[in-house]
Amino acid sequence: MKILKFSDGRRTAFGILQGTNQIRILSGSPFEGPITPTDAVVALSEVTLLVPTVAHPRVFGIGLNYRSHIAETGRGTPEIPPVFMKPDTALLPHGGQIVFPRAAQIVHYETELVAVIGRTAKQVRREDALTHVLGYTCGNDVSERAYQRKEMAMGLMTMGKAADTFAPIGPWIETEADPTRLRMTGRLNGQIVQDCETSDLLFDVADLISYLSSFITLLPGDLVMTGTPGGVGPLSPGDTFEIEIEGVGRLTNTVAAFTPVRT
């Protein structure tokens, strides 16, 4: 089942994708009760897709979580998941434009599988962790490396990850995906630059949810960006970056430079 969030100019709602171009509108939010389809339908081509979660989710990121990415950075293997957070102002839907902040120097793409929390998770065991996941979607952990490196030298990792539009997520939530062996492909202007399976994860989705929930109560709609494989590289204004995850979906975003607002 593919659950999406959309606006048609009159309302914002959740729906289920039927076929390739029809949305069956849901009654209410899948994060607040059972998934209840209505009789109403709308064409996918007639709506604007939104980030498929609650209005203000918490966004958890995980660094150095693919063995191939650890190898390309030359860093040691983490003993625990390196966790950081992005603000909800970083969120960007499918089709939206990644906009560099004024201070940007080196901006990289990061293809990621994102777990969407469906029910409250607190102190959950690894074997129970996936029962708290509604489904999975695509994500891009866009990162400003010059500032990230300066922050990491001080033991921090915040502003280099936190800029507006630096967390593209979408296009929808796939509820039936098996997160243990999904192929992920990142394409920069149509050329494959990242190609990996989630079997390369150091800490898998169940590990991450169990670990996070041992400190923080995870809430419905929270997003867990699970890390990126090897092959990260720079983005430039005018680029298009596409993330495709097998059985989940395809997230596409364009890139633009910062434009001062004239008053």
Rank of each mutant, 00 (worst) to 15 (best):
E110M: 00
S199V: 08
G135C: 10
T240V: 12
V107Y: 03
G61D: 14
G135K: 12
I25E: 00
E127F: 01
L130D: 11
V47N: 08
T226A: 09
P81A: 04
P81H: 10
Q148P: 12
A167Q: 08
Q18H: 05
G15L: 03
A103Q: 04
N189M: 07
H94V: 13
L26F: 11
E244A: 13
P78D: 14
E197C: 15
T185K: 12
A257T: 02
S199Q: 07
E246M: 07
I98K: 05
D8F: 07
T252R: 13
A162T: 00
S213R: 02
L208M: 03
R125S: 11
L218D: 04
M154V: 05
R126E: 15
Y66F: 12
W172A: 09
P82K: 07
V224E: 08
I117G: 08
Q191C: 00
G247V: 00
E176H: 09
L113D: 14
G95A: 06
A40P: 04
F6R: 00
E72T: 03
A103D: 08
F60W: 06
G227A: 08
V255N: 06
T158E: 12
P93Q: 07
I209E: 13
D239G: 13
P82L: 07
T158A: 14
I106D: 01
Q105W: 07
T77V: 15
